[in-house]
Amino acid sequence: MRPGNIAFWFFFTAGGVWLQNVIPGVDFLAPGLILAMQEEKWTVPVWLGLIWLFIQEGTGSLAFGAGLLWYGTLAGLYFFGHWLFEARNFLFMFILGVCLGSMHFLLINVMALLQDWTVPLERLTMESALQALIFPVEWGLLYLIHHHLPDNGHAA
């Protein structure tokens, strides 16, 4: 991987964790996983996904497995979706964001139910809506920045 890309993913991870601290309940790293699957070699999203999986599992309060289901379902949705849609289409990303927001609501509810916990539904609904809105916007910004990296072939 080129040094510019390494720096990009490093700063993206640091910024994503910081934003997750600012707006809890929203995954700011998920758009990066989709971008890595679109733009990088297959090993890059695997390694990034592994690192981010441990970050999310470690910082979360759910039992181990929620992050695995989260990123696994996201990757699965992308794989199945890019057969039907143009992979770099904003509409596809918007649909993916809606699916991700719904999945956040469903996954947290199921995991909380399995652990005999109560989760405030209002907060969960708000987080799901934020996740659905933020995902495509963040992906779009990342896509632009990634294409303007100095040593990228797409750079002007």
């Binding site: 809890p24 309940g25 309060s61 992050g67 947290i108 987080e127």
Partner: peptide, 15 residues
């Protein structure tokens, strides 16, 4: 160290 962080932070927690 931190407050609630990430999508899996379903509970009101501190680290």
């Amino acid at each position: 160290i931190s407050h609630r962080l990430g999508p899996n932070a379903a509970l009101e927690t501190f680290l």
